[in-house]
């Protein structure tokens, strides 16, 4: 998927792969998460929640780049799912993004794991 803005500018690429592992719906994210592509990830979580899939894992291990907008989406997703009795797991064995989670303290706010539970 290549993003294109209304004025034709090429944006970053984001790939969202959906799968199921145990009781988790897994969104595997490839490419770059930034303020241009983050709404797609936000919408994917909303879509799963609207289908009653309240246990969601977002796999950032294959993600090439993530900025603070992506972190904002993770926080929002966690809150929405928790409010509905569900949960969010962030899967990240990617040292660059782990560093980002660590330096913002989000590794303590979010449920960050090396693999999807049950995998």
């Amino acid at each position: 998927m290549r993003g294109t803005s209304g004025d034709g500018a090429a944006g970053p690429e984001l790939g969202l792969g959906l799968s199921e592992v145990g009781e988790y719906a897994v969104i595997s994210v490839t490419g770059e998460i930034d303020m241009y592509t983050a709404p797609q990830l936000r919408e994917a979580v909303r879509q799963l929640a609207s289908e009653g899939r309240m246990r969601v894992a977002i796999d950032l291990t294959p993600t090439e780049f993530c900025d603070s907008t992506g972190l904002g989406v993770l926080i929002g997703a966690r809150r929405r799912l928790s409010d509905s009795g569900g949960s969010l797991v962030v899967v990240c064995a990617n040292p660059r993004i782990r560093k980002l989670l660590d330096l913002t303290g989000l590794d303590k706010v979010l449920d960050v794991r090396e693999a999807v539970p049950g995998e």
Partner: peptide, 13 residues
């Protein structure tokens, strides 16, 4: 709200 969070997180990052 996520946008507001993001503005704050940018400075934290």
């Amino acid at each position: 709200e996520e946008d507001t969070l993001s503005e704050e997180i940018t400075l934290i990052v």
